[in-house]
Design a protein around this nucleic acid. Sequence first.
DNA 1: GACACGAATGTAAGCGCTTACATTTTCTTT
DNA 2: AAAGAAAATGTAAGCGCTTACATTCGTGTC
Lengths: 345, 345
Amino acid sequence: MTTGTVKPSQYVPTLADVARAAGVSTATVSRCLNAPGQVQKKTRERVLRAVDDLGYSPNFSAQSLAAKRTNTIGAIIPTMENAIFARGIQAVQEELARAGATLLVASSAYKPDLEIQQIRTLVARGADGLILIGHERDPAIYDFLERQNVPVCISWAYDPARAKPSVGFDNRAAMRAMAEEVVAHGHRRIAMISARQADNDRAFERVQGVREAMEAGGLDPADLVVFETDYTIEAGGAALASLVASSPGPSAVICGNDVLAVGAVKAAQKLGLRVPEDISITGFDDMELASVIVPALTTVHVPHRQMGVLAARQLWKMVTENTGGDSLRLDTELRIRGSLGSRAR
Amino acid sequence: MTTGTVKPSQYVPTLADVARAAGVSTATVSRCLNAPGQVQKKTRERVLRAVDDLGYSPNFSAQSLAAKRTNTIGAIIPTMENAIFARGIQAVQEELARAGATLLVASSAYKPDLEIQQIRTLVARGADGLILIGHERDPAIYDFLERQNVPVCISWAYDPARAKPSVGFDNRAAMRAMAEEVVAHGHRRIAMISARQADNDRAFERVQGVREAMEAGGLDPADLVVFETDYTIEAGGAALASLVASSPGPSAVICGNDVLAVGAVKAAQKLGLRVPEDISITGFDDMELASVIVPALTTVHVPHRQMGVLAARQLWKMVTENTGGDSLRLDTELRIRGSLGSRAR
DNA sequence: GACACGAATGTAAGCGCTTACATTTTCTTT
DNA sequence: AAAGAAAATGTAAGCGCTTACATTCGTGTC
């Protein structure tokens, strides 16, 4: 069904139209809108009425071209389809809205080159600052951001040793705590399902965390079998199937995130394995899914919303005060639930 | 940890700098970037080298101010935290990227006035077109969009009788099919957990669908108990608890979406009710959660990704060809799974 | 070799706004 | 009531780009 063909080109009023209608200069109108305190009440009312009458709304491009600010923050996340990013980014948006700024979201699908392209796009669109996930990326792009004078806040990671401030958690320590718990449950044959470490420093850090825990527990970290795959339920399931097919199969499988873990649990059950009696499985993130599944997932709780709020606040401060930012470490918490049991078989 | 204090104000090159460096006019540089065919190979190479050397990238605001287009589409969804919107919107983004356009996402938290504000913001930012969820909103805002000459495509709903083209599914028919299945399973005491109908035409349509199915099945639609609440797992659980506490309790609870249904299933189990032996529960959307939970959710499968792709394509066509758009109906499908059983008690 | 013609390039006028600076008005102060 | 200070408003110069129109260049034709 076609609802029309060619639309008439409507007239959109400009600042100058409002000024004319109100009998003032464009400067006064501009001030009415941006610094109402500077203009007399009587004039202001006249101008605002004209704004209303004409249905004027400012042109963003002109505004930011003239003012050299956009009040816009860009965020580039791996994907919106993972609820944890969606939730964190929702919090960022709400916090920025509170400060009068807008959020531009792009996703990189975990691809470094796509991420670079998105960064360039957002900067070209005049993002006043950027929220990026994880520290690791081509130094050239950091140079570019430096040159363009665009402040950056890293999230979903914490490492005060890096050049850019980060608001997040220590992926390695968090996963180490989880793995220590697994070791404490008597597990010796431990395997891990992870995202590709090469493109993802959080994944890398988490694997390191497991290795550290093994070492601390008297196990040989070289024995850790790491299966790298996509962050999807299906991939997690396939990974688990492949891990248990090997000999000797693991008694505990530590997953890089909850999505993988859910896939692993379902796959294990489909193979006739009982979780946790026959095999223990752990996750990371504590998304809703984790406590809905049976057995509930033992996982690492990450305060995604809070992280989003704090990252937004931090970055906005850097933008408005034109200062470098502070790094902020958030605490994660172990959530021990049904999917982790003591050593089996 | 503070990583810096005051940043030096770096110099960002402009078109004019590139022109000077390459020894051509700004017009030629502009053409090199936007219509390379119009400039001779030799000149083009010289210009592009200058672009590279200087690390030039165009200023978006200036560009769109001059060209009066932004190549930007805005989308306003109720929330990013519901995976189904995240998924649909991710598809929209990918499809638009393919066409060389960018997506701006805002969320309204299901609040009509917040949505209006977001619409105005996006339009002011120069969105060339808008994707909105559901048809129902203040006519004044449609007038505004008409006046601003911003094309709109509605999604997550389908109703060719409305003024704006929609790419989505028939919420009423889809839910009616689900409810007919419930009735066919012998259920007579049916209750529904829904989002607030006043603010949400999809919710309203779904309730109507259930009523139609009851009528068609010889039941009195007035007997339908509708419990309105937020779209969260907890709210779904609370709603279920309250429904079963009433007398006579329902033998089947139809939920407005999967999130509510998951909450309902968990709550029922916590109350010692077996699903579906003691009580049947159905959902809507077929999100991942639906097939992960035990028992798996009987629900209505909605092709969210495809919907996103088609809506994006439709809207972009409206924008570039400056035409009215077509409405497109997508099919939903019943997914009968473990959570629906035959009449109990 | 002069001419016409299309292709390549240049010139310059905006796009709609902000803001430094100039000017006018209003309010104090004596 | 005059002078000076402070507040309100106006003037106009950009911000960095696109694009209509003007100009120049290169080529083929006779």
